[in-house]
Amino acid sequence: MKIHLNVWRQKHKDSKGAIVKYSLNEVAPEMSFLEMLDMLNLKLAKKGERPIEFDHDCREGICGQCGLMINGIAHGPLKNTTTCQLHMRSFKDGDTIYIEPFKAKAFPVIRDLKVDRSAFDAIIAAGGYVSVNTGQAPEANSVMVTHDEAESAFDSAACIGCGACVATCKNASAALFTSAKISHLAKLPQGKKESEQRTVNMVNRMENLEFGHCTNTEACEVECPQEISVLNIARMNFEYNKAKL
């Protein structure tokens, strides 16, 4: 397959980036999207040019490290898929593909397609944990959790923190990410005790990190690789109001 690429190149955080055009002639349909970028980087390295920097880790769709805006859609055209699980068979011979980093004020570009998503870590640090005494593991059945509760909490916990929700949101809101963490813990007895303080702290931290507000367009859920439900956001609003009223 012949593929034309329009890639966002940016030297460093403060420099002005621009789209640069490349072409690849021998792209195989079975290649993953990141393998295609590896192929381009090999070509650039051979020519003595600076390779394109992009984030990735497990390449198994689990870690949430990879994340690119592909043809204007977070993680590309396939629904509920991370960038690394997207393959070139989703494109046609002769296609032009735009590749840009996830963009938001809270996610500054470090270089090329690599963005600083440490704002998410800061939100987690504000309360995304439970305070438990260390020591021996307690008896598993001493705290009862129903099957439905466990499933529901796990659905929220499935968020991999890739940032596609922020990149997709027209307001650059981190509501889906923050709310998934808040409701994951609020749904379980271990997390319920600190729920109010946690919610207030995490919401305040999110507010201070240059994320926008949520207007319930639900676009984040549509593009989320983990199908995290927007009802988590409503749950966060509920928990916040409960804590404040």
């Binding site: 204007g72 977070a74 963009k103 938001a104 990149a167 676009a219 549509v222 593009e223």
Partner: peptide, 15 residues
């Protein structure tokens, strides 16, 4: 002011 601008933007497919 906080959201990003893309050279190619098809985010509208989701809402």
């Amino acid at each position: 002011m906080l959201s990003g601008q893309y050279a190619k933007d098809r985010r509208n497919r989701a809402s």
